[in-house]
């Protein structure tokens, strides 16, 4: 019986490793897509077609606050994974809820920036630069939205089913996704926002 349980445990970790690797490969293909969008943005950055340039449009302190909020949500997501390893259901729910709140705050800030730009007449139709900007940052925002929907479903399932092994695997993948989005945002912060201030 003993050897069977250890064998099962070994098999389970092996399967988890395979799932994680598959998800990792998806994340890397996603990274290629973001890479292409970054290349587009860098090429079209100067094509303003008489519209505003990047230094006139972006607000650096606002972007910094967005960055710090997303970074903190990445940290709380990590703390949720720690609690998951200790099988502490209440803490997992707590940390993931906090991650969710920070994530939705980030999304609201991003959307308010978009609506401000559009109300000033600087929508994606204004110039090549703004099209590239809205595509790049909007794609990241869509990923964040998908992550938030995923998170709320997982939270609901933890509440109903407890920390089952299939659910903890999903939560681990969700944390990978969330940390990955944070890394993509660092490059958006650097290439879009910081470079506009130079």
């Amino acid at each position: 019986m003993n050897s069977v349980t250890t064998l099962n445990l070994k098999k389970e970790t092996e399967n988890n490793d395979k799932t994680t690797l598959g998800f990792w490969i998806y994340l890397m293909t996603d990274l290629v897509m973001f890479g292409v969008l970054f290349a587009t943005y860098t090429v079209l950055r100067g094509n303003t077609f008489g519209g505003p340039m990047d230094r006139n449009v972006f607000n650096l302190p606002f972007a910094l606050s967005e960055t710090l909020i997303l970074l903190t949500s990445s940290f709380t997501c990590g703390l949720a994974i720690l609690a998951l390893q200790q099988k502490n259901k209440i803490q997992v729910i707590l940390w993931f809820s906090l991650t969710f709140i920070l994530g939705i705050t980030f999304l609201i800030l991003e959307l308010s920036e978009f609506s401000k730009l559009i109300s000033e007449g600087n929508s994606w139709q204004r110039s090549g630069f703004l099209s590239a900007y809205f595509t790049l940052v909007g794609t990241h925002g869509l990923h964040i939205t998908a992550g938030l929907i995923w998170m709320i479903i997982c939270l609901f399932k933890i509440w109903k089913e407890g920390l089952t092994s299939s659910l903890s695997r999903k939560l681990t993948l969700l944390s990978l996704f969330w940390h990955f989005l944070d890394i993509v945002w660092i490059f958006i912060f650097t290439i879009v926002y910081l470079m506009s201030g130079i």
Partner: peptide
């Protein structure tokens, strides 16, 4: 180290696409 190997090959592709385009 499969993850690392996958990541390095994808980063290579990204460098070619981004660097080449620019």
């Amino acid at each position: 180290r499969w993850k690392l190997a996958v990541m390095i090959s994808f980063v290579g592709i990204i460098l070619i696409i981004v660097g080449g385009s620019i």
